[in-house]
């Protein structure tokens, strides 16, 4: 017998999923969203996305190689996703240098300081985004108008997001029904014709991505459904109480990155809970915090903050929310 057998503990059958295949599943799901943002924001979207993705990959490579001293595997897709998501979370007229700073914070502080993929407690793209939002509030909240600014980058015409308009209006004592004339219709919101970050505008594209992710079993339904459900119920109750002061639930869901957050950010493997029960708690928490921040907080939208806050609770959720063990409760039904 010249050749030696391999001996290993069972199982000897290995599934097809790899980290790479799961990550590329997410990237494929992001393509429709990217396409729509390119359609609405054109040149700016292209520049922002490219800069963000390339700098995320470069930072990942450099940090893994020279600081962590590990063999870098930048093509595993995770840095690519972080770069894309960061781009999707910023306006299309953001100066290049700010994007690069965002990518450095996202990859460097959000991910690598904790030891790389799998060890970061917070969603890296959101860490980058929130850092930019706090550091560069002006640039981060000037939203280019869709379609008109297609061929413009830094010189794009800007306007407010629908949520911003409403928030400002309500502060000035205006009624919601009067404000509705200033903002796009629900249908327009659904296809993404509004001011906002690159990726947050197109509801339909994100739902396409969700369908793909669920079909490929990359994610489960628990987080998106519980998060959106909570937002619908919570804002629905407020809307029924006083439709003059509060927006309708559908409007809430379609604006301010709720869909983007629910489908792509909150479902990030690394920073979401391990059990289905935990995921539902996580989703409800995000939904609840989002509405609280939107209605009672200073920011017109609150998805990023809500997700980051709930990220911090994930270890706690994992500690106390356990799956139901087989045979734990004797069920002789």
């Amino acid at each position: 017998m010249s050749k030696l057998f391999t001996v290993s503990p069972s199982p000897h059958n290995y599934g097809k999923d790899t980290v790479r295949s799961l990550m590329y599943g997410v990237i494929i799901a992001l393509i429709p969203t990217l396409a729509i943002s390119l359609y609405f924001f054109g040149l700016g979207a292209l520049i922002v996305t490219l800069v963000s993705v390339v700098s995320a990959l470069i930072f990942e490579y450099l940090i893994t190689k020279f600081l962590l001293k590990k063999q870098p595997d930048i093509l595993d897709g995770s840095a690519l996703i972080t770069g894309l998501l960061l781009a999707f979370n910023v306006p299309s007229n953001l100066p290049i240098i700010i994007i690069i700073i965002g990518a450095l914070v996202a990859i460097g502080i959000g991910k690598m300081t904790f030891g790389g993929l799998g060890n970061n407690p917070f969603n890296p793209a959101l860490v980058g985004r929130v850092f930019l939002l706090i550091s560069f509030p002006v640039q981060m909240t000037s939203w280019p108008l869709p379609i008109q600014s297609r061929m413009h980058y830094l010189d794009a015409m800007t306007g407010a997001t629908p949520l911003g308009i409403v928030k400002e209006g309500i502060k000035n004592g205006e009624k919601v029904s009067d404000l509705m004339s200033q903002i796009p219709s629900h249908m327009q919101l659904f296809i993404g014709n509004m001011g906002g970050s690159l990726g947050e505008v197109a509801g339909i594209a994100i739902l396409l991505g969700l369908a793909w992710l669920l079909y490929k079993k990359v994610i489960t339904w628990h987080i998106p459904i519980s998060m959106i459900g909570t937002i619908v119920i919570f804002t629905g109750i407020l809307w029924l109480i006083n439709p003059d002061k509060y927006l309708d639930p559908l409007f809430h869901v379609l604006t301010g990155g709720v869909l983007l957050g629910a489908v792509f950010m909150a479902t990030d493997y690394v920073t979401s809970p391990m059990t289905h029960k935990g995921m539902i708690i996580f989703g409800i928490g995000i939904g609840f915090l989002t509405v609280i921040i939107r209605i009672f907080g200073a920011y017109p939208e609150g998805v990023s903050f809500a997700i980051l806050i709930m990220n911090a609770f994930v270890p706690l959720i994992n500690m106390y929310v356990k799956p139901k063990r087989f045979g734990e409760v004797i069920n002789n039904g």
């Binding site: 391999t6 290993s8 000897h12 290995y14 790899t18 980290v19 799961l22 995770s78 030891g115 790389g116 993929l117 799998g118 060890n119 493997y269 690394v270 920073t271 979401s272 809970p273 391990m274 059990t275 995921m279």
Partner: peptide, 13 residues
Amino acid sequence: SRRGKVSDCIRCS
């Protein structure tokens, strides 16, 4: 017959 390369847990659950 060989197992794939082991990498860090990505907590995919």
